[in-house]
Design a protein around this nucleic acid. Structure first.
Length: 419
DNA sequence: TCTGGGGTCCTAGGACCC
DNA sequence: TCTGGGGTCCTAGGACCC
């Protein structure tokens, strides 16, 4: 019998802030998206006041009234804490798949004759003790069922944050208590379709007609149904796959209309995307650039994207910047207030597969050495220690992060002092 | 003043080939 | 110029995830 565990960190970003600032315990806390825009993580105390994804500026009166503590997102801290949680979890199973920054799947071998509920509680306690992060653990015969078990474990205070539903006598009751929208793989569009056809719960979906599901929801929907029945269709992915595309995009901290500002932003996004490309030892042959105005405003709207191929696959930052600015020039129109822009690198292949173009004279070994030096400096001295002049100096357009917490675990200057 | 960012997979349809 | 079957490749768009 297969057994999967899904370990999910509770209100992860808020828990990271609390781990280093215990005075936030039992208080309402919210972590905001980039640009301090939306609420993307909420403590239990804050959930009743502010919805998920709510734009915070619309709710500042409640924030003040309830004394809600707000934080800008501090991804440096959260990514580091995520690694620590996974390090502890990997002591409990060699087969682990970090699924997102706050969730991991574990494969639990079936022949071990142990009480998995108890095992889950040990897991949870150790992660809490060693990292300060509270988690919930769901266990089931497939990933989809482990997800459901996790949801139920969170909801039900009786089970101490851990629930194993494998071969459970109450399986049907459990599935009937989960809305079909809450099933992993069912988004709001499919949920609407399913409900129109009388499929309201996870139990209804499990027992739905398979060929109808396949017709309406493609093979992915069918996989979900089979997983609900206990047949694993979605494997554990233990090795990190190379990305097939790399995106870097941001909203600006302010509206910008000047081409110069826009080109600084595009150049710095292109620069960062190229760094990510080299981190996985890939090169790309296709690039796309887009810009858009603020759709929430009544101002005249403009949004455009454009792409092109490189003469030969590359990961050379100056070239990628050059092409991104060339594309920007083609789609930029003056007279608009731009709010967001992005760069995407596509058609990624491993760098060793390079097919150089016979007719282009480029000093590849020189470029490679330059990029290696560039990355090495930024890796050892901090990102952006050296950067391309095209990405600007004053950079008035960078995102707002007015409520950022210290980099407690990754910066010597921010390390906690014990008196 | 203020509304996130970064990904994946699948299918349909068009262009092109023989 | 049109007829038909069978196939591949590419792109756009829609769905999903966190």
């Amino acid at each position: 019998m297969n057994k999967f565990a899904l370990v999910d960190c509770n209100n992860f970003y808020v828990s990271c802030e609390r781990a280093f600032n215990p005075s936030l315990n039992d208080k309402p806390v919210i972590v905001l998206s980039n640009n301090d825009g939306c609420a993307i993580a909420r403590s239990e105390e804050a959930k009743r006041y502010i919805g998920m994804g709510a734009p915070i500026f619309k709710h500042m009166d409640i924030v003040k009234e309830q004394n809600i503590h707000l934080f800008s997102s501090n991804y440096t801290l959260y990514a580091d804490m995520s690694h620590r949680v996974n390090e502890v979890l990997s002591q409990f199973s060699p087969n682990i798949e970090p699924y997102s920054i706050d969730e991991s799947f574990l494969y639990l071998s079936s022949n071990r004759n142990i009480d998995l509920n108890q095992y889950g509680i040990e897991m949870r306690n150790k992660v809490l003790k060693w990292t300060g992060i509270p988690t919930s653990v769901g266990i089931g015969p497939t990933k989809t069922l482990a997800k459901i078990a996790n949801k139920l474990a969170k909801k039900n205070k009786m089970c101490q944050g851990v629930l194993d539903i494998t071969n459970h006598a109450r399986m049907n009751d459990f599935l009937a208590s989960v809305e079909v929208d809450d099933v992993w793989g069912v988004g709001w569009k499919y949920a609407k379709l399913l409900k129109r056809n009388g499929i309201n719960t996870a139990l209804d979906l499990r027992d739905a007609n398979e060929s109808w599901i396949k017709k309406k929801m493609t093979v992915q929907g069918l996989r979900t149904v089979l997983e609900l029945k206990g047949t694993p269709c979605i494997e554990l992915e233990e090795t990190v796959q190379d990305k097939k595309q790399i995106v870097n995009s941001r909203s600006f901290g302010m509206d910008i209309d000047k081409y110069e500002d826009l080109s600084e932003a595009i150049a710095s996004y292109a620069c960062r995307a190229a760094e990510k490309l080299r981190e996985q030892d890939s090169i790309c042959s296709h690039i796309s650039v887009w810009i858009k105005t603020n759709g929430f405003k009544d101002d005249p709207q403009y949004s455009k994207s454009i792409s092109c191929r490189f003469p030969e696959p590359t990961s050379y930052t100056p070239l990628i910047i050059k092409y991104s600015l060339h594309l920007l020039k083609k789609i930029y129109k003056s007279g608009y207030k731009y709010k967001k822009a992005g760069v995407m690198l596509m058609d990624l292949v491993p760098a060793e597969n390079t097919q150089f173009n016979l007719f282009i004279k480029i000093n590849h070994s020189r470029n490679k050495k330059l990029m290696e030096a560039f990355d090495k400096i930024n890796n050892s001295w901090g990102s952006q220690t050296i950067r391309c002049a095209a990405s600007g100096f004053a950079r008035p357009w960078t995102m707002k992060r007015n409520r950022i917490s210290p980099m407690y675990t990754t910066d010597w200057n921010d390390i906690i002092r014990v008196n």
